[in-house]
Simulated assay, not measured.
Amino acid sequence: MKVELRAVRRTYGTVAALDGVTAGFEAGTLTAIMGPSGSGKSTLLHCAAGLDRPTEGTVVIDGTDLGSLNEHGLTVLRRERIGFVFQAFNLVSALTAEQNVALPLRLAGRSAAPGLVLQALAEVGLDDRARHRPNGLSGGEQQRVAIARALITKPAVVFADEPTGQLDTQTSRQVLGMLRRLVDDHGQTMIMVTHDPVTASYADRVIFLEDGRIVDELTGALTAETVAARMAGTC
């Protein structure tokens, strides 16, 4: 089990953003988290990734109980064992694609093995764009650079928050197909928040949240239609 949440509760004042969530995420799986606004999707992602501490309960990533770590320990874990892909690409505009991908290694005080960064860019089909800065790349290319950056440290798990939210339909499908291949070909564990049934249909499993609780789950051969129908019935 790469990621496990056990009876996780997160309150803000008197409001429970998460209310006793228990869920496991296996290696080599892509899970989509869905639910209406205010259902707890982002809070679940933040608690699972160590960006926020739960009020109660336990989060375990790759065998490490996050509750046992101080802030420095959490920072090191996020830097070395977790990858992030956000709706906003968050690339450094002054750096090239190659330099952006290498940034997590530099921040960790590590140097990239020869060819490692170009190999990461090749994985996302952008090794020929390594010297381009973000303003010379399309939105889809920028998101692919962000994916390569998330994977450069070979993290135990990648968290994605609306990863195709700024992309057009065709580019979204290309990026989602790439994420799916990374899971299938490299055994990557990926947890993705989305509101879009088409995006969720690329997952192995969809977890539905409502009022901070898991209210339903969908597995098997997923389609946008089956996800949308389940959303209509639960959210």
Rank of each mutant, 00 (worst) to 15 (best):
E98V: 12
P104H: 12
A156G: 04
P36F: 02
A228C: 05
Q170E: 15
H195Y: 05
T234W: 15
A146K: 04
A97W: 12
G20A: 00
S68Y: 02
D52H: 07
G187D: 02
A27H: 03
S93Q: 14
I152K: 01
E141A: 10
G125P: 09
G63L: 05
L137G: 10
T58N: 07
E123Q: 13
V183D: 03
A88Q: 15
A7Q: 03
L69T: 00
D204H: 14
T153E: 01
F86R: 07
A120H: 09
Q188N: 11
T31L: 06
T223P: 03
A94W: 04
A148C: 05
V76E: 13
D216V: 00
D62E: 08
D65Q: 06
A23P: 00
A232C: 10
L30R: 02
D65P: 04
L167P: 11
R213S: 05
G24S: 12
G40Y: 00
Q119V: 08
E123L: 14
L44M: 13
R53A: 10
Q174N: 13
D204L: 02
T14N: 11
E26Q: 13
S172F: 08
A49F: 01
A112T: 01
N90Y: 15
L218Q: 12
T64P: 09
T43S: 07
P197W: 00
V21D: 03
G177Y: 04
P134K: 01
E26L: 11
A27T: 14
D184R: 14
P104Y: 14
K2N: 15
T55H: 05
V175I: 12
S111M: 10
Q99H: 03
F159V: 05
D184N: 10
A113M: 05
F89K: 14
V21N: 04
L44R: 11
A23S: 01
N135I: 15
L18V: 04
S172T: 10
N90I: 03
R79C: 09
S111E: 11
T171G: 02
V198A: 14
F89P: 09
T14G: 09
G139Q: 11
